[in-house]
Design a protein around this nucleic acid. Structure first.
Lengths: 247, 247
DNA sequence: CTTCGACGTCCGCGTTTCGTAAGGAGCGGG
DNA sequence: CCCGCTCCTTACGAAACGCGGACGTCGAAG
């Protein structure tokens, strides 16, 4: 196969209904499942064997795959592997029995959840919602965390080792930026542009805000571990919290 | 002109496999997880409860910890706190349900990422790689390396055999230039122009900085192997580290 | 109107880094 | 072996840089 572009196919526009690919060779099962998912507001695509599933997935990359373990021709596990080879996608496996071996097997191949037949379509819908809910924020990286620091951009809240930090607007934006770009050195001008949105201005402003942020974030603000000074250059956020060099 | 894509001319330094400590009381889960991580090329260590985890961590400090939130005896959060108390280490939390509260809690206490059961081991491996990549930014970007030396321009850090070098701005720029143009001889005027950006000036400035750089980079600064003197011409960076003199 | 917090600016201080100078050692040619 | 040129080494003063403290302003809250 071709080298897939860096952009994983899971990227999805918020407004569109999640696309779900249902793979099952039993028309009855597929019909029922598809019907329920459709009524639940999902865009459903169907395939009744392995090769078709791969084609459908390639044509319209799904947000989630409901996959029967038992398929004619190509094994469900194999289909799962193949699809996963094209990009990360959540998979819910349908298995005949609540067999422990199947469970392990399914999980090993990369299923995110599994449902045993006979199952209630209602339960499947719940699982689908659950898995999607799980995978959504994971991929979008809603929350930033490193070195005991955690930042929730949407809630505009930040914590350090579980305790809430009282950050001002600028401090919060600054910390968010650092968490989004760990390990890289930024000049004051860069920060001024990226965080403040200014193309000019007194660069000491940046210095002062870094100091204030350190005062709230660092264990010992006098000897910063997280936000390190790069002499003559600017600052760098160290996600490991490793000690800076002092020769 | 010859800004050709840089090919490291020399074998890489010892790149030990990252050590990962897996903490889970469920033997099945631990086995599967450890197996996947092992196959992914990591050195895996295991512990099935909190105290053991702390002991293992103390014996062999891991590069990353995969930690079950639910543990007999000591809570996963507590274990996380304790381990973090000993030193900075990335943590990936495992939890039973996709409970949003647990997720927030885990991240706030210091986890760097979060995976909910049931999870695909494949996803876990991806998370592990992601977190390690975040924590070890030395692996990112176009990084220059040769002869045990490594320079990351974006992070503005340089290492020698894995140990961080405390270079000043000029020293860093000088070393970067040498690494970008291995095996070629440059006059002091060239270096002055390329590294300093000056078209004139005291050339002894270059001499002194080369010396200072040698002092930090060479094993034996008195007998330089990496930055060699080309008599009557200037200097040359020898990526092989081959000895010039054989007296 | 007063109080308070956030924010940008300014100033003095200690530290780090840089450039230059000067003496000594090394190399090469005669 | 000697001499001239080049390079090494060390030292030092000056400049640059970052830090901490403090002040003035502005807007929101009381």
């Amino acid at each position: 196969m071709q080298e897939q572009p860096y952009e994983p196919p899971v990227a999805r526009v918020r407004e569109e209904a999640p696309r779900i690919l249902v793979v099952d060779d039993d028309p009855t099962v597929a019909e029922v499942v598809a019907g329920y998912l459709d009524r639940a507001g999902y865009a459903v695509d169907r395939a009744d064997d392995g090769p078709t599933a791969l084609t459908r997935a390639a044509a319209h990359w799904p947000d989630l795959v409901v996959l029967d373990l038992m398929l004619p021709g190509m094994d469900g596990l194999e289909v799962c592997r193949r699809i996963r080879g094209h990009g990360p996608v959540p998979v819910i496996m349908l298995t005949a029995r609540g067999d422990e071996d199947d469970r392990i097997l399914g999980l090993e191949v990369g299923a995110d959840d599994y449902v045993t037949k006979p199952f209630s379509p209602r339960e499947l819908v719940l699982r689908v919602e659950s898995v999607l809910r799980r995978s959504r924020p994971a991929d979008t990286g809603q929350r930033l965390a490193a070195a005991g620091l955690s930042v929730d951009p949407s809630a505009r809240r930040a914590t350090k080792n579980g305790v809430e930090l009282a950050l001002t607007l600028r401090e919060f934006d600054l910390l968010s930026f650092f968490l989004r770009h760990p390990g890289r050195a930024f000049g004051r001008e860069d920060l001024m542009r990226e965080v403040w949105g200014w193309d000019f201005g007194d660069l000491s402003t940046v210095t002062v805000h870094v100091r204030r942020l350190r005062g709230k974030v660092e264990d010992d603000p006098a000897r910063p571990r997280l936000i390190q000074t790069v002499w003559g250059v600017g600052y760098r956020f160290e996600p490991t919290g490793a000690e800076a060099d002092h020769a």
